[in-house]
Design a protein around this nucleic acid. Structure first.
Lengths: 227, 227
DNA sequence: ATGACGCGTGAAGAAGCCGTGAAGACGCCT
DNA sequence: AGGCGTCTTCACGGCTTCTTCACGCGTCAT
């Protein structure tokens, strides 16, 4: 049974969501503040988090950021029409999708389904294959697909960066998200770190590092792992 | 059965609309003031709201704004020829479309149909499909529907503009709203930015950029994404 | 007709971003 | 303490993207 954590400080919204989600056989847990949310996320281990960005105690974006430090749980962000910037920030911080208020309940449900489907199928435990390589994120090893013993060695930072990218195949991962997840929230400005380590990864994993096939740059936005 | 809330303080217009809409099998509810309108919208849960901007008690635009705080119901605005500015303001506030008085009843009915059709078909699965393309706003990628690998690449500004348009399918989005959401509130005069970037989007996404099928211009008003 | 206005288009300069090589700083191991 | 691997910092060249300007065309109103 799928467990959903709903975080919103407006009782009527929480109530509406609880009723609708419960009717669809979801188990619902709620929180009204950011602090509660983080606590619940740890205690209840939800499968999805629906998070309103306008919380009374802390900024919703920072909740996303904190949550992402230890959890990969899919986060669906609710944002008011007026705050399109914080929506972008939330995605940067690691949110998976967003819905603008006022929202259509069917749309929200569709997105919940999308986000869970996508996550369960991409729960990375098996080696990821691309190019000539088979990358095992659990065992931390890179093998050549044709069976040749591993010659590629990645440093810890390189592993972390590759990890974040490979966990979202095909999806654009923003610079901010990469920096937060690899170096921490205080490093969101240090984009030159990214350039440096992407260079290393490409040199080790791409056939032609100058013309990458799988570790792609999206200028002004971030990077993308293309399977 | 589709229920329509008609808001107008002129009895003869209300009467004409009631007769015509009723003849087309719509259920009609009416209100003569802004306060009544808000009350009815809550009590009757209409599927469409037809709202005259010239109300006796409050500004029609603020009715739109208030309504949009909790409801996603499609709003069709009626405006006198003299109030073209408030027409734009209403769109900015979240109205879906407008008709200028005096209006042709057939045109009005067509717009009602259009506005309900797109809303009921708002069964949102994540990627938005139009023309040959499948656009995924969250993953930030454009793929060809027939499976050909993505060749279209959009810049950050292009993505933001497309995002705003695609999040309101079929709806007329005002220039002001686009400029505010993409470039920020200080850029509401720079309509040439819009022209520039709409050109880019059309060149990349329309089969015949000079005769766009999906990214349409509404002269003097704004742009519309036609699914 | 004619002028004003808004929209579409092309082109070009400016700004910012990215990739790269190289070198210094740091911590861990023997 | 020395050496090594790794992380951080710097400088520069090239390229993408953003911004601005100029012009043509169609529509509408005078």
């Amino acid at each position: 049974m799928t467990r959903i954590l709903v975080v919103d400080d407006e009782p009527q919204i929480v109530r509406a969501l609880r009723i609708n989600l419960h009717a669809r056989q979801y188990q619902v847990v709620t929180a009204a503040t950011g602090a509660e949310a983080l606590q619940s996320a740890e205690d209840e281990q939800p499968d999805v988090v629906i998070l309103d960005l306008g919380l009374p105690d802390v900024d919703g974006v920072s909740v996303v950021r904190t949550l992402r430090q230890w959890s990969h749980v899919p986060i669906l962000v609710l944002s008011g029409r007026l705050h399109s910037t914080s929506k972008v920030e939330a995605l940067d911080a690691g949110a998976d999708d967003y819905v603008t208020k006022p929202f259509n309940i069917d749309e929200l449900l569709a997105r919940v389904r999308a986000v869970t489907r996508r996550h369960s199928s991409h729960e990375v435990t098996r080696p990821v294959r691309f190019g000539r390589w088979s990358v095992d994120l659990v065992d931390r090893r890179v093998d050549e697909i044709d069976g040749t013993p591993s010659v590629v060695h990645l440093t810890p930072t390189e592993w972390q960066l590759l990890d974040v990218l490979l966990r979202s195949p095909g999806r654009l991962v923003s610079q901010r998200q990469l920096l937060t997840q690899v170096w921490g929230p205080t490093f969101v400005e240090e984009t030159h770190y990214l350039r440096q380590y992407m260079k290393h990864l490409r040199r080790k994993l791409e056939d032609d590092p100058a013309r990458p096939q799988h570790l792609l740059t999206e200028p002004g936005m971030g990077y993308r792992f293309q399977p």
